[in-house]
């Protein structure tokens, strides 16, 4: 191939890729940002959009160029050139994608570490998921309990300890950009630092049965003072019978066995 067509194609890719990136970057794809994780994730998305735009442009331009240039005339029964490959080209289009994806993977890893950093003074809140409702316990404030409504202070890291009572649910506040499954028998946690006051939706993102569609809760992010005031007004405590994670469950069983005469009473060691 002579220089000129290559130059034409490169130019077309640059124009196509740039225009597409510029258009796509005009939109706020992931919606409002309301946590410290949102910024780095959205920047990562923007970078990915730009790289993807150029890759898509390469494929489109190459296909379009080939179709314009080498489309057979009707009735033309001759064959194309018997080119079987080009080792240099093949190496290039193996190595460059490797570099791109490894770069993106490294960048993602850095972002992941960043958004999952824990603070020593983080606030712990328990989120209990059951078909088809969310309830919340505030262990640092007398184990208070709220149903269908979650309050958190702004600008302080919150670690939600997720506990599923029956099937798998998933804790998702789109504006926070975080999501984690609540798995029965497993302790999972969500780390998030809300940085914008407001009212949001907590959505169950994992299919959990008939009422999955409606399994939502309100999230209120407010100032520390308002949060405390709200907590003080709450009177109910987390009910005793709310199912615990396996470890706690087993610990409880053990305690019960001990109270009822120890493991010897189980009949296994007795004989």
């Amino acid at each position: 191939m002579t220089r000129l067509p290559i130059l034409k194609m490169v130019l077309a890719v640059i124009v196509f890729g740039t225009v597409q990136s510029v258009i796509l970057l005009q939109f706020n794809w992931f919606g409002d940002e309301a946590s410290t994780a949102a910024k780095p994730i959205d920047t990562l998305l923007d970078v990915t959009i730009i790289i993807s735009s150029f890759i898509f442009a390469i494929v489109c331009v190459a296909l379009g160029y080939a179709l314009i240039k080498w489309r057979a005339k009707p009735g033309d029964e001759s064959d194309g050139l018997p080119i079987h490959g080009n080792t240099r080209l093949e190496i290039i289009w193996t190595i460059i994608p490797v570099i791109i994806v490894l770069g993106l993977a490294g960048y993602s890893w850095a972002v992941l570490d960043d958004i999952e950093k824990t603070d020593s003074n983080a606030l712990h809140i328990n989120a209990y998921a059951q078909q088809f409702a969310w309830t919340f316990g505030y262990p640092e404030d007398g184990n208070k309990w709220s149903e269908g409504e979650l309050h958190v202070p702004v600008d302080r890291q919150v670690i939600f300890d997720l506990q599923a009572q029956d099937v798998i649910h998933s804790f998702w506040v789109p504006e926070w950009r975080i999501k984690k499954d609540a798995v029965p028998g497993l302790e999972t946690e969500v780390i998030v630092t809300p940085d914008k006051e407001g009212t949001y939706s907590l959505i169950c993102a994992e299919l959990c049965g008939l009422g999955h569609t409606t399994m939502r809760a309100t999230v209120v992010v407010e100032s520390e003072a308002k949060y405390k005031a709200w907590l003080n007004k709450q009177t109910t405590q987390v009910p005793e019978d709310i199912l615990k994670t396996t470890n706690q469950y087993e610990a409880d069983q053990l305690k019960k066995e001990e109270q009822s005469g120890g493991i010897e009473g189980s009949g296994v060691i007795e004989q």
């Binding site: 080939a66 179709l67 080498w70 057979a72 194309g80 050139l81 080119i83 080009n86």
Partner: peptide, 10 residues
């Protein structure tokens, strides 16, 4: 895409 280049695309 490389296959298409220098072909006779029907």
């Amino acid at each position: 895409l490389g296959t298409l280049f220098y072909g006779k695309i029907h």
